[in-house]
C-alpha cells in the first residue's frame, strides 16, 4: 500500500481536572499560572492512532499541528518524542482570542499550506472547552468527510479505512474513503510512551513557527475578529446555599430521618 501523509491536531491545555483552590482569582477569573499546561488527553489518543497508521503503512509520515503561544511548541516536541516526524506551531497575536470557528480556519489554512494529507486525526475534544467542534469544522473547511468518536482503526486498505466508533448506547463500524478527518475518543488506546532515542535526538529540535501570513490566512477570519461567538460575561460558580437539617450517624438520628422521609412521602 502506498505510504500515507498523516496529520495530528493537538492542543496544549491547562489541566482543568486538577483545579486547586488557588486556580481561581478572587474576582472569579482564572489564574492560569496556577494550572500546569498539558498535552490535551484525547489528542494523545489521537497521536497513538496516527502512529499506528504509520506502523501499518511503512514510509508514512506523521506531522503534528498545534496553535498557541510560544511554549505550545512543547506539544510538537512531545509528539516527536513519541514518534511523529515533524510539526508546526501556529503562533501569532492575530490568532489570539479565537473561538472554535476561527481556530478551525487557522488550522485548515496550515494543513493546506503543508500539503494534502490522507488522514487527519485529532482528539474528540479538549478539556478546557469540551466543545468537540474543531475537528468537524476543520473537516468542513477542507471539504473532507469526518468520522468522530473513533475508538479503533479496524482496517486500512487502498483509499479506504474501516473504524469502530462510539455512539449513544453502543458502537458502530463505519467505512470511509480517504482522505478523511477522524476525531478520537478517550476510550481509544492510550498513547505509547516517549522513545528514549527520539528524546535524545530531538530534545533540541527547532519547531517551525507559522504566523497568519505564513499560512496565507485572511487576518479578518482569525482570532477574535474571526469569531462569530463573543463572551458576554464570565461568572464564577456559586450555588444557592440551603438551610439544611443536620444529624449524626447515631441510630436514633438515622431512624428519625428515615421516619421523616417516609412521612413526607419522599421514600416508601
Amino acid at each position: 500500500m502506498k505510504s500515507l501523509k498523516i496529520a495530528v491536531l493537538a492542543k496544549q491545555v491547562p489541566d482543568t481536572r486538577n483545579v486547586g483552590k488557588d486556580a481561581m482569582n478572587e474576582d472569579g477569573t482564572i489564574n492560569r499560572a496556577a494550572l500546569p499546561a498539558i498535552f490535551n488527553p484525547e489528542d494523545m489518543n489521537a497521536l497513538e492512532q496516527a502512529l499506528r497508521l504509520k506502523d501499518m503503512c511503512p514510509g508514512s509520515t506523521v506531522t503534528v499541528f498545534t496553535m498557541g503561544p510560544e511554549r505550545a511548541k512543547e506539544i510538537v516536541l512531545e509528539g516527536m518524542f513519541r514518534g511523529a516526524d515533524t510539526g508546526y506551531l501556529l503562533t501569532d497575536r492575530l490568532f489570539a482570542g479565537a473561538d472554535t470557528l476561527a481556530t478551525s480556519y487557522a488550522l485548515s489554512s496550515a494543513l493546506r499550506k503543508a500539503g494534502s494529507f490522507d488522514i487527519i486525526v485529532g482528539g474528540r475534544q479538549a478539556i478546557d472547552g469540551d466543545t468537540a467542534q474543531v475537528g468537524p469544522q476543520v473537516a468542513q473547511k477542507l471539504g473532507l468527510p469526518q468520522v468522530t468518536y473513533v475508538e479503533e482503526i479496524l482496517a486500512l486498505e487502498e483509499g479506504k479505512i474501516t473504524l469502530r466508533r462510539a455512539i449513544t448506547g453502543g458502537v458502530e463500524t463505519v467505512e470511509a474513503p480517504l482522505p478523511v478527518l477522524l476525531t478520537v475518543n478517550g476510550t481509544a488506546a492510550a498513547c505509547r510512551p516517549r522513545n528514549a532515542k527520539l528524546v535524545m535526538a530531538r530534545k533540541k529540535a527547532e519547531v517551525t513557527a507559522w504566523s497568519v501570513a505564513d499560512v496565507d490566512a485572511d487576518p479578518a477570519q482569525c482570532g477574535l475578529s474571526g469569531s462569530p461567538t463573543k463572551v458576554k460575561k464570565v461568572d464564577s460558580i456559586s450555588f444557592q446555599a440551603k438551610e439544611s437539617k443536620r444529624c449524626t450517624s447515631s441510630d436514633e438520628d438515622i431512624r428519625s430521618l428515615v421516619e421523616e422521609l417516609i412521612t413526607n412521602h419522599t421514600i416508601g
Binding site: 469540551d130 463572551v231 464570565v234
Partner: peptide
C-alpha cells in the same frame, strides 16, 4: 455554559451571524 472544566460559567452570544 460551564467552561474551563466546569470551574466558571460563561454567557456566549452571536451578535451578527
Amino acid at each position: 455554559r460551564p467552561a474551563f472544566g466546569g470551574n466558571i460559567i460563561a454567557t456566549i452570544v452571536n451578535p451578527d451571524n
